[in-house]
Simulated assay, not measured.
Amino acid sequence: MASSRAIPIATILLRILTFILLAVATVVLVTDKVKSKDVFGNTSEITFKDIRAYRYVLAASVIGCAYTLIQIPFAVYWVATSKRMIHNDCLPNFDFYGDKVSI
Results as ranks from 00 to 15, higher is better:
residue 13 L to Q: 13
residue 95 D to S: 03
residue 31 T to A: 07
residue 9 I to M: 15
residue 52 R to D: 14
residue 97 Y to E: 06
residue 81 T to I: 02
residue 40 F to Q: 12
residue 3 S to C: 04
residue 28 V to A: 14
residue 85 M to N: 02
residue 42 N to F: 11
residue 74 F to V: 04
residue 55 R to L: 12
residue 30 V to F: 12
residue 32 D to H: 15
residue 72 I to W: 05
residue 66 A to D: 03
residue 56 Y to E: 02
residue 68 T to Q: 10
residue 103 I to G: 15
residue 40 F to R: 12
residue 70 I to R: 01
residue 102 S to V: 14
residue 100 K to Q: 09
residue 75 A to W: 05
residue 46 I to E: 08
residue 50 D to W: 06
residue 16 I to C: 07
residue 83 K to S: 06
residue 63 I to V: 15
residue 81 T to S: 06
residue 9 I to C: 10
residue 38 D to Y: 09
residue 59 A to Y: 11
residue 77 Y to C: 00
residue 8 P to K: 06
residue 29 L to V: 11
residue 22 L to I: 05
residue 67 Y to H: 11
residue 55 R to F: 08
residue 67 Y to C: 03
residue 80 A to F: 02
residue 98 G to P: 00
residue 20 I to D: 05
residue 22 L to H: 05
residue 62 V to N: 01
residue 92 P to K: 00
residue 11 T to I: 14
residue 42 N to P: 02
residue 65 C to E: 13
residue 51 I to Q: 05
residue 74 F to C: 03
residue 30 V to A: 12
residue 96 F to D: 04
residue 23 A to N: 00
residue 39 V to H: 10
residue 32 D to N: 08
residue 97 Y to C: 01
residue 56 Y to H: 11
residue 7 I to P: 01
residue 82 S to V: 01
residue 83 K to I: 02
residue 101 V to K: 04
residue 1 M to P: 13
residue 37 K to G: 09
residue 87 H to K: 06
residue 82 S to F: 00
residue 43 T to H: 08
residue 13 L to I: 15
residue 26 T to G: 10
residue 40 F to C: 07
residue 67 Y to K: 05
residue 67 Y to S: 06
residue 71 Q to A: 08
residue 91 L to Y: 15
residue 41 G to K: 09
residue 1 M to R: 08
residue 103 I to Y: 09
residue 20 I to Y: 11
residue 76 V to I: 15
residue 54 Y to S: 10
residue 44 S to W: 06
residue 2 A to R: 10
residue 30 V to M: 09
residue 37 K to R: 13
residue 17 L to R: 05
residue 58 L to T: 00
residue 7 I to S: 10
residue 43 T to Q: 14
residue 52 R to H: 08
residue 9 I to P: 04
residue 58 L to R: 06
residue 75 A to E: 00
residue 54 Y to A: 08
residue 75 A to G: 04
residue 20 I to F: 08
residue 22 L to W: 06
residue 80 A to S: 01
residue 38 D to Q: 09
residue 98 G to Q: 01
residue 92 P to I: 00
